[in-house]
């Protein structure tokens, strides 16, 4: 019982450290829908500097600037599509997590399905081959049994 209280206390204490991370750039939006779009957009674009985190998750100089730019574009009434075009024309396909469906990205999109088909075909072939092998064995057994009775008959008939 005592232990649990200590643990709870510790958790409470640790949770204060979370506060230090809340000092972020504050943006005020003219309406809540725009704010939600902003939150959503900074998750789907990649930070070009750090390369493995979204704009939202990065505090690098360029990520901050790009967030500011997205904010500005949203407040100017730009659509999501226009914002994507804006970012892509400057930072290329890299900036989006979801790659475009194009000739050189075909393998990326279709690869997994191709792989699935290959594996499925493989399993089917194995199954058929195995089945015919079993059938061969079975028929062999039947032949042998027939042989046996025939021989037995021959001997006994003797």
């Amino acid at each position: 019982m005592m232990n649990r209280k200590i643990v709870l206390l510790l958790i409470l204490l640790i949770s204060f450290f979370g506060l230090s991370d809340t000092k972020k750039e504050l943006y005020s939006f003219s309406d809540i829908e725009r704010q939600e779009r902003f939150i959503q957009l900074q998750e789907i674009y990649r930070c070009p500097k750090c390369q493995s985190s979204s704009l939202a998750g990065s505090n690098s100089l360029i990520a901050k600037d790009l967030k500011g730019q997205i904010y500005k574009l949203i407040e100017e009434g730009k659509t999501d599509k226009e914002i994507e075009t804006y970012l892509r024309s400057r930072y290329g396909d890299f900036i989006v997590y979801k790659p475009p469906f194009r000739k050189n990205t075909l393998i990326l999109w279709l690869g997994p399905f191709l792989f699935l088909i290959v594996v499925f075909a493989w399993v089917m072939i194995r199954k058929i081959v195995f089945k015919s092998e079993v059938e061969d064995l079975e028929s062999e057994k039947i032949v042998k049994a027939a042989e046996k009775t025939r021989l037995k008959n021959l001997f006994e008939g003797d």
Partner: peptide
């Protein structure tokens, strides 16, 4: 100062 031209150039550092 604000990195405007830099963003237009696709600069990231």
């Amino acid at each position: 100062q604000k990195g405007i031209l830099a963003i237009d150039l696709g600069v990231y550092g």
